[in-house]
Design a protein around this nucleic acid. Structure first.
Lengths: 192, 192
DNA sequence: CTCCCTTGTCTAGCGGTGCTAGCATCGAAT
DNA sequence: ATTCGATGCTAGCACCGCTAGACAAGGGAG
């Protein structure tokens, strides 16, 4: 039995290595540079090994996305926990969100820009994704305002953050006044 | 002289044909299906002809984007012109924006999601892009609120719309409550 | 201890991609 | 009529995601 266990462990290790390497490569040179050939070379195995762990490149992107969702939820909860009062909490949340997107562009892309084959906003949505949304909801729910559905409010606020994150990163919005835009968003959307 | 003129005209026609065909193909089957081979076959020329008009696929995407920007500006101005009062104008603008994104997903992608090699938010930004932003600004400027920079407000509002458009289209947001989210956005962001 | 068979990995290759070098053809100008 | 430049073609490069099939290593049965 112990032999099988060891093999299973080694296999799990290798899977983690694949995901970590894909993520690293994507952050360094963008997802376009993450080809199965390059990835295989970096983990020092041949291409087909990747396909014994994942159905294809898309599933590898999905794995990075799930990892990122977990980290993002942690980052957002840490930021809101350190802030006093609803207004400050929302501002901290927004900054944490945009900061994460800025610091981990490849992970953010895997989550919200690329097709990782994951289900969103459904019953079979993976737990990490649901939890990341829950982290948003916990903070934003308390500023939705009376008679406003908290989930819908959260979705709308999230969409606004997502728009800022992507347009800024793609050079569609000048980077300089980013902080100002966040302030405006929080001031107007959140009801103290 | 007339011979050269005729040739120039035919060349311009062919360039328009390339852009129109690329757009059509992208709307029908997505940008992934727009390969230089397929595109060449549809216009009934060989691949290298494409490269005598455009540097590469990216520039073709850029051409579709510019065309789309012009149309989008027209659509937004038409929508706002038909509405009475600032509040109604902003709501009409938002709906027109999202409607355009929904009806022309490939063009929207070319504009805001893909790399068409265009400069955004700079001096050398192509005129159609500047004009599309101007169309947003014309309407949104009047609801920015006192002491708030109109351009920055417009950028923020635009980002929110962009977030809604992309997340909805990617299945990250359920489609059902789209209208409700627009209402919330307009009510909260616009200052009557 | 030897044989077999499973398990795991690799090499090689398929059909596709964006893009380009170099040849052939055609038409205008001499 | 002949030259010559413009123009579009065929063929091919290096790369992509993915997979079939050969091959070696290792544990279990006799």
């Amino acid at each position: 039995m112990s032999v099988q266990e060891r093999k299973q462990r080694e296999r799990a290790d290798r899977e983690r290595l694949i995901v970590a390497t894909a993520r690293e490569l994507a952050e360094q040179q963008g997802w376009d540079a993450v080809t199965t050939r390059r990835l295989a070379e970096r983990i020092e195995y041949s291409q087909p090994v990747l396909y014994s762990h994942f159905r294809g490149k898309r599933e590898i992107i999905g794995a990075v996305a799930l990892q990122g969702a977990t980290e993002m939820a942690v980052a957002m909860r840490a930021a809101t926990a350190a802030a006093d009062g609803p207004r400050a909490r929302v501002a901290a949340l927004a900054r944490a969100y945009l900061d994460f997107a800025e610091r981990n562009p490849a992970v953010y892309d895997a989550l919200f820009q690329l097709d990782g084959g994951l289900a969103y906003a459904q019953e079979d949505t993976p737990e990490p994704l649901k939890d990341a949304f829950a982290a948003l909801l916990e903070c934003l729910g308390e500023v939705a305002g009376d008679g406003v559905d908290q989930a819908l409010f959260t979705e709308t606020f999230w969409a606004a953050l997502h728009g800022l994150a992507t347009l800024t990163r793609a050079g569609r919005l000048p980077r300089e006044d980013a902080e100002w835009r966040v302030e405006l968003l929080v001031d107007r959307l959140a009801i103290v």
